[in-house]
C-alpha cells in the first residue's frame, strides 16, 4: 500500500473522528459548566427538599434561570441549605420565593423561583427567606387519608 494513500485514509479517519466529537459537543450535548463567575449564588433553606438533586434546574415561569450548586444540612436550624446559582443578567427581587416543585407527576424535582415586589434585588450571598418545601407523596397520602377519616366521622 502506497504511503501517501495511507496518509490520506488516516487523514480522513482522524478528520471524521474530530468532526464526530465536534458534532457531539455542539448538537448532542449542552455545556453544564458555569461557575460563580457566571452569575450570583444565593441560599434558600427548606424544611424538606424531597428528592432534589445537585445540578437540578432552577426555573422561573418554566424557563431555566439557574442550577442547584450545593445541598447541605444546616445542623443548627435542622434545615436543608440549598445554594442556587442564578445566571448572569437575570435579577430577582429580594423578597422572591423559592419552591421545590416536581416536573410531572413522578418527574424530577426542581426549584421554582418567583419574584416579589421589592425594589431591591438579590445580591451574591443573599438568602431567600420565603420558601416552601417539597411535597412528599407519603405525607400527601396520609394527610388525604386523615382528612377522609375526619370527614367520615363528621358525617356520621
Amino acid at each position: 500500500m502506497n504511503r501517501s494513500t495511507i496518509d490520506i485514509w488516516v487523514g480522513i479517519f482522524v478528520a471524521a473522528g474530530i468532526a464526530a466529537v465536534i458534532f457531539l459537543a455542539l448538537r448532542v450535548s449542552s455545556p453544564s459548566s458555569f461557575t460563580s463567575d457566571d452569575g450570583i449564588s444565593v441560599i434558600a433553606r427548606f424544611d424538606n427538599i424531597g428528592g432534589l438533586k445537585l445540578n437540578a434546574p432552577v426555573k422561573s415561569s418554566g424557563v431555566v434561570v439557574g442550577r442547584v450548586a450545593d445541598i447541605r444540612f444546616d445542623p443548627k436550624r435542622y434545615q436543608a441549605e440549598v445554594t442556587i446559582l442564578l445566571f448572569k443578567g437575570i435579577d430577582f427581587s429580594k423578597d422572591s420565593s423559592a419552591d421545590i416543585l416536581t416536573a410531572g407527576l413522578l418527574g424530577e424535582q426542581y426549584v421554582g423561583l418567583e419574584t416579589g415586589g421589592d425594589e431591591a434585588m438579590l445580591k451574591n450571598g443573599d438568602t431567600i427567606s420565603i420558601t416552601s418545601s417539597a411535597l412528599v407523596l407519603e405525607q400527601l397520602i396520609s394527610k388525604f387519608m386523615l382528612d377522609k377519616a375526619a370527614e367520615t366521622k363528621a358525617s356520621q
Partner: peptide, 12 residues
C-alpha cells in the same frame, strides 16, 4: 430534548 438533557462534561 437530546441537547437539553445531555451534559457536555458529565456525559460526553
Amino acid at each position: 430534548q437530546m441537547q437539553a438533557n445531555v451534559d457536555f462534561h458529565y456525559d460526553l
